[in-house]
Structures are given as structure tokens and as C-alpha cells.
Amino acid sequence: MPNVKSLEDLKRIREEALKKQQLKETSGKTEVIVGMGTVGIAAGARETLKAILDMIEKDNLSDIIVRQTGNIGLDSFEPIVQVVRPSETKVTYGKVNPEMASRIMKEHVIGGEIVSEYQIEG
């Protein structure tokens, strides 16, 4: 079977990523966490996470770590997204659909401003 993607491509991607990393070594990484328990998945958490990943890809955003985790324990607020910016406290958002996720990415993850209307007690 023809394999269009080769690991050689990946090596080149790595070199470029490392160059970028060296340029901004001091800025820490922002962590974005999406709850992916049964309730979260049923409520659309995969699509929420996909919107976050699409934005990272499209806008070429480095230094963002995306994690998924099991049940966060706030079932009625799923899908849940948590944002932790370097040396700031964790912010929890509830009932996050893909559009809301894009806004959280723009305003909070990139812009540094909490989207307070989506925020819940985490």
C-alpha cells in the first residue's frame, strides 16, 4: 500500500518545531483539559476537543498542551473544558460546545482574558 506520509517528513517537522521552541523558550505552556468520561462524550466532548485541535492546527499555535481526562465530576455541566495558563490558577468552563471552545481559545488561551460568562465553579 502506498504510504503518502513518510517518517522523513516527520523528521523535518521536528527540526522546524525545535527551532521555533528555541525562539521562545521562556514563555511557558498553557494547558487545555477536556473531560472525556461517558457523560462528557455523550454530551459532545469529542467535538469540543476537535474544535480546539482544529484551531491549534489552523492558527499554528505552539506551546499549548491539550489533554483529555476522565470524569471531572460535574456531570450536568459537560462538556467541561479547563484552562491553565502558566503560573495562573485553573479556570473551569461548563457546557462548552465547539463555538464556545473557539472563543475560549481566542480570548483566554491566546488573549489571557477569562470568558467569565462560560465559567463555572470547578
Partner: peptide, 10 residues
């Protein structure tokens, strides 16, 4: 050393 969430890697 390069995370999977690096855009080009994704």
C-alpha cells in the same frame, strides 16, 4: 522533545 500537539505534527 516535540509534543504531539505541535500543529504540524497534528
Amino acid at each position: 522533545g516535540v509534543p504531539l500537539s505541535e500543529p504540524a505534527v497534528m
